[in-house]
């Protein structure tokens, strides 16, 4: 299969490789450099050792990421399956509707959630109008997770939908012929076959939700800061680039481990998953 690449092919690839070296490899090396040096540029492990103070935040971020991913999966899989069963026109409309909010900046969408969830916001005003006690929603962990699910769920729907919609209908019919009821068709055929989509969906939701910032500041009232907020603060207000870099580095390693684990669920010959 493998062809030795011609000079022409290499020339075509050159700009991308240069791009990747400058904008991917070099920044990563700089992160590593900062993580292991102090402000004066001398080698030190101080930044890494200092991380034990941030264990709680790491755990909280990962935990919120897990919750977000699970909720997204629970909502996204039935949704993706349901639309894939409809006519092509209906499908494209639904996917379109899913994408439209993503045309807006996520900062604006998060800000809107603040107004919806706040104590005198739309929901609580409505509740009060019909005689219920207002619910405290903003500035809670629940609000943070809601914001993350809302922002990242489309990334779960799209890969699952693309796998399910490409699935061979004959297989499902075969399963039905062999005596599967509707539920069994889903659990025994559709679900296992959509694993590559689910895996890439999980990765695409889990990674940004663990490393997110801003959502937690706005919807959590600055009281449920996540690791992303902590990193942002090191660069924006503390000027402690070295500590910020070491937190980022450890976060990246943790995420890589998570992704490596997720990738064990997809064997190499399966298609549809997004290789990260």
């Amino acid at each position: 299969m493998k062809k030795s690449s011609s000079l022409w092919a290499r020339l075509c690839a050159a700009p991308y490789i240069v791009w990747m070296i400058i904008f991917i490899a070099a920044p990563l090396l700089m992160v590593a450099y900062y993580a292991f040096t102090d402000a004066a540029g001398n080698f030190t492990l101080k930044n890494i050792v200092a991380l034990d103070g941030y264990a709680g935040i790491f755990i909280r971020s990962i935990w919120y990421g897990i919750i977000t991913t699970i909720i997204s999966l629970i909502i996204a899989f039935p949704f993706a399956y349901a639309i894939s069963q409809k006519s092509t026109k209906y499908q494209s409309t639904m996917i379109m509707l899913l994408m439209v909010p993503m045309w807006m900046n996520f900062l604006i969408r998060t800000y809107s959630w603040m107004n919806i969830l706040s104590d005198n916001g739309i929901i609580n005003t409505a509740l009060k109008a019909i005689g219920f006690a207002p619910i405290e929603m903003i500035n809670t962990p629940g609000a943070v997770i809601l914001g993350m699910v809302y922002n990242f769920m489309p990334y779960m729907v799209l890969p699952i939908y693309s796998v399910i919609s490409k699935m061979d209908r004959n297989i499902i019919e075969a399963a039905q012929d062999l005596g599967c009821n509707k539920l069994k068709v889903i659990t025994r055929v559709v679900l296992p076959m959509s694993v590559p989509g689910i895996v890439s969906g999980i990765t695409m939701v889990f990674v940004p939700s663990v490393s997110t910032f801003y959502i937690s500041q706005k919807l959590g009232g600055g009281k449920y800061d996540l690791i992303g907020d902590t990193i942002e603060r090191q660069f924006q207000t503390s000027y402690n680039y070295n500590l910020g870099a070491s937190i980022s580095l450890v976060l990246m390693i943790l995420l890589l481990v998570c992704m490596a684990f997720m990738n064990t669920f997809t064997s190499d010959d399966e298609e549809g998953g997004i290789v990260i």
Partner: peptide, 25 residues
């Protein structure tokens, strides 16, 4: 500055019981 921002980080982290998170995790 370092002293101040370290305390600020601690303020943002402290004051919560992380046991639940550890257990869930």
């Amino acid at each position: 500055m370092q002293v101040m921002t370290n305390y600020w980080d601690e303020l943002k982290i402290d004051g919560y019981d992380y046991t639940t998170y550890y257990v869930c995790f």
